[in-house]
């Protein structure tokens, strides 16, 4: 894994963390669903599934 690729994984993990934090904090159901949808591809990448 190159350094740049590693940094992209770090950035992905950071964004996932922020999305989960926002998901927990929000009280708006539309925002909860939106955060969930945004999380999906990022989690698949972090888990190295796709």
């Amino acid at each position: 894994m190159t350094l740049i690729m590693f940094l992209y994984y770090v950035m992905t993990a950071y964004v996932v963390g922020m999305l989960i934090w926002n998901f927990i904090k929000t009280k708006d159901i539309e925002s909860e669903i939106l955060y969930t949808l945004a999380l999906l591809p990022l989690i698949l990448r972090l888990l190295r599934m796709k």
Partner: peptide
């Protein structure tokens, strides 16, 4: 409870979509 349900659905989608891709890769 609503957040848990949404998180549960997300987990199911990740597993249902991701596991076949993971199995194919190996």
């Amino acid at each position: 409870m609503r957040k848990l349900i949404i998180a549960g659905v997300l987990t199911l989608i990740v597993l249902a979509g991701g596991i076949p891709l993971y199995v194919q890769r190996y």
